[in-house]
């Protein structure tokens, strides 16, 4: 479960989020919608504790931002898979190595890593492309690779920050469908987007964020 209690964070330029109270339950699929600069990314960064609230707190399962020690934050992030608009794939290694990195961090054995990465690539429809480098993949494939990287460690939560930002409408819909499949298997999904047309009518919770404050619908 993810809970934000009166959480506020303000950047030096005055932007940020203020007094956010929000609970996202296990297995939930929630969209965070709002214009660019409204505070969506700040909210997500608080969930994976890249930013700690200056006021209030964020609680993700047993991790409480008020009391968490910085050396414990990696253990929170191991429960979270992250997908970004600009992919964040490493150019100097192929798809397999990009995805396997998460499992190396968790200390998996080599043969287990091979099986699990292959399985993840199949899940996102990238089987057989494990030796390709990011630059050899299309935008949609790179984003699916990001989802595979997020999925490979079987996370409790997936945070997707504008994952369709660089994709065409068809690929964007396919990506959302893929995330919905993942959600059906029990993973909490929080996806930030500024494109209302993309998310409307899908039957998921929509959290609207405007000027750093939340309006739920």
């Amino acid at each position: 479960m993810i809970r934000l209690d009166n959480a506020s964070y303000s950047y030096t330029n005055g932007s940020g989020i203020s007094n956010i109270n929000l609970t996202i339950g296990d297995d939930e699929f929630a969209f965070i919608i709002g214009p660019t600069g409204s505070g969506k990314t700040t909210l997500l960064r608080m969930v994976y504790m890249d930013l700690l609230p200056q006021v209030g707190k964020v609680v993700v399962d047993e991790f409480d931002s008020k009391i968490i020690k910085s050396r414990k934050i990696p253990f929170l992030r191991r429960k979270i898979g992250m997908v970004f608009q600009d992919y964040h794939l490493l150019d100097d290694r192929n798809l397999f190595d990009n995805i396997a990195l998460s499992l190396h961090v968790l200390g998996w054995a080599k043969d287990e890593i091979v099986d699990r990465v292959t399985e993840s690539l199949e899940e996102v429809g990238l089987d057989g492309k494990d030796d390709r480098y990011p630059e050899e993949l299309s935008g949609g494939e790179q984003q699916r690779a990001c989802i595979a990287r997020a999925l490979v460690k079987d996370p409790d939560i997936i945070l997707a920050d504008e994952p369709t930002g660089n994709l065409d409408p068809v690929t964007s819909f396919e990506l959302i469908k893929l995330l919905e499949e993942v959600n059906r298997e029990g993973t909490t999904i929080i996806m930030a987007s500024h494109d209302y047309n993309l998310i409307k009518g899908r039957g998921h919770r929509i959290i609207e964020i405007q000027d750093g404050s939340v309006r739920q619908s």
Partner: peptide, 16 residues
């Protein structure tokens, strides 16, 4: 920098 950030995001400890 990208590798370090990626490692931090996937939960690598400082020593890793």
């Amino acid at each position: 920098k990208e590798l370090i950030q990626a490692l931090q995001l996937i939960g690598a400890t400082r020593s890793f």
